[in-house]
Design a binder for these strands. Structure first.
Lengths: 339, 339
DNA sequence: AATATATAGTTAATCGATTAAATAAACAAC
DNA sequence: GTTGTTTATTTAATCGATTAACTATATATT
């Protein structure tokens, strides 16, 4: 079909062995062939438009120069951006990225891991989904180089790049408290994943430290399935209780989008009726009438760092574990009612 | 490091040749080994957790079960969705997708094509960028199976899946005319790409057919570089002229986002001061105060069809060319001022 | 001149899976 | 009992590139 040109063809044309061709074309092997022959080989390679077969090279070398990336949800711009950043950074280092989305489903993540390992990726970057601990342990056991990103399991020792979720949530809620809000609600995902636990812990500690006694009705959790309706019900309840919330902290961008749509439908005004702080930004928020205060995650740094850690781990003899925490930034705008 | 288990290991364990193992484990070769030995082999494979090395398989078979996808811009949700759909559909057929973004830059597209071909992808799906004709001709010449998507070159005979851009624009502008608008502007990209020419043609014909004499100031084109400022200037001019526009048709979602932000800053009200129709939808529009009338492209069908055409082309003996035009749909909402 | 040392190139094994062809054993046919 | 056929299994070549080990010159050293 194509790419008929192999080392053999060049060798034949020039009248040398394939070994000579290989030496001549690979950098760093200069001494092996005379300059004159090397030039003839290079000329022939160019003339025939030789493109090396990476598959053959990979088989021989045991490396594919490919990284696998498993994100939790492509349709979420946060992860989509991570994917893009990881790809760029990997390319910069001569690596190709193959990626897939687990859609928060551990079975799908297993499939992806197998597909990627069968394709001999040199390493993996993973946003782990719930109940995927055994996958991580498996990778450790198999000594596959990998780095977790965005999320990790505190009880499993592994390399990861994540943000300080506790601090992010704490600062966000503290900010609402300082803005004079007394009844601050939080909308989170129902998951055992550590990053979400940390966000909830940050929320709770901030309430405590502000001298606000939390109402259990103020912290609602929704499942991944039918987000739209669950969010609606949750917000409804937070607003319906005797002491309805006067501020709401969204634990993720998807929660914020769904929550705000419902809040708008109630004709509630942000920030007067309800102050808002969200996790993450998003193009979607650009048209929201009230500029949102939000927790900005250092997505680019997260992505870049994960690639760098992975490459280091792959080349490093030690195979050491590095755990990186990056600090998010609270971007204060109108929706929190202070500016 | 990992995946130490090869056919050889199983062969050794069971005490047979690697050929026997290969036959026993590949479906469709049932008759080749006795059931008893086959079972022992399968048991050993499971026990050792054998995972076939796809690289070796690819080298031998000359197929990688991988498709390459080159899109024009990952940060554009339209293309991001296409990427996702293509990936899903390809997975369904047992193919993995490696993809990259040309960022509308032909040099980058060349790089990507080479990277993907070196990795022996079995076929390519491409959103061609401007001035990439020679790339397409190269692929034809090399007999690489490929399908263009979203855009194509009418002067080059190749398989593609695209929408009827002329009709989409014609319908959109006709709709504005029927809504009583007399001075309808269009904001497009400055590019020679056929799909954009078609959108402009649709706009112009619709004006003509509505008996509206087009003003040359009403059709503005911006370059990809500094979109934000160019859009601002363009919209400014369309509004400043003696007969300022009373309706505006955006040729893409990115143009719409930038244009609307600027229009909002002018305190113009949609649709009263200015009626709007946009190409494409997007999460970003969900929060726009006035629901937008827009041209909905059948993204899922586009993506699925492109994969199907490619697979057919790859398996097909004829290598025939199929050109598919899908029809977009005008979704009418408030911004065009008719509902 | 004999020996050591570069230099330039080739040979052949290797990576892991597939598969055509060869072989061996079991059984049937006449 | 020789020949033919079926069934089960192995041998060995192959895909394309890399590279250790080897060979054959040419050049340098003593």
């Amino acid at each position: 079909m194509r790419n008929k040109v192999s080392l053999k063809d060049i060798a034949q044309k020039v009248g040398v062995s394939t070994a000579a061709v290989s030496y001549a074309l690979s950098t760093g092997k200069e001494g092996k062939v005379s300059e004159e022959v090397a030039n003839r080989i290079k000329a022939a390679a160019k003339e025939l438009n030789y493109q090396p077969n990476q598959i053959a090279k990979s088989l021989k070398m045991g490396r594919t120069n490919t990284l696998g990336l498993i994100i939790a949800d492509v349709s979420n711009p946060f992860f989509a951006t991570i994917a893009r950043v990881v790809e760029d950074e990997a390319n910069k280092h001569g690596y190709t990225v193959i990626f897939g989305s687990s859609d928060e489903c551990p079975e799908r993540a297993w499939d992806l891991i197998n597909v990627l390992l069968n394709r001999q990726v040199d390493g993996l970057i993973i946003v782990p989904s719930e109940a995927s601990e055994e996958q991580i342990l498996y990778l450790k056991d198999q000594k596959v180089p990998f780095v977790l990103i965005d999320r990790y399991f505190p009880e499993i020792s592994s390399s990861f790049v994540a943000i300080n979720n506790y601090k992010a949530a704490y600062d966000a809620v503290m900010h609402l408290a300082k803005a004079g809000r007394k009844r601050i609600g939080m909308l989170a995902y129902k998951t055992s994943l550590f990053h979400m636990q940390e966000r909830k812990r940050g929320y709770q500690e901030a309430l405590r430290d502000s001298g606000l006694s939390p109402d259990e009705n103020w912290l609602k959790e929704v499942r991944h399935g039918d987000i739209k309706n669950e969010v609606k019900t949750a917000v409804e309840e937070m607003l319906a209780s005797d002491d309805a919330i006067d501020a709401l902290f969204f634990a993720t961008n998807t929660l914020a989008i769904n929550g705000l749509k419902y809040i708008d439908s109630l004709k509630l005004k942000v920030p007067d009726d309800l102050a808002i702080v969200s996790f993450d930004e998003g193009e979607a928020f650009d048209f929201y009438y009230c500029p949102l205060t939000f927790v900005r995650q250092p997505v680019v740094e997260l992505g870049n760092k994960s690639v760098q850690l992975l490459l280091a781990q792959m080349s490093g003899s030690d195979g050491g574990i590095s755990q990186v925490h990056l600090d998010p930034e609270l971007v204060i705008r109108k929706s929190s009612g202070l500016v």
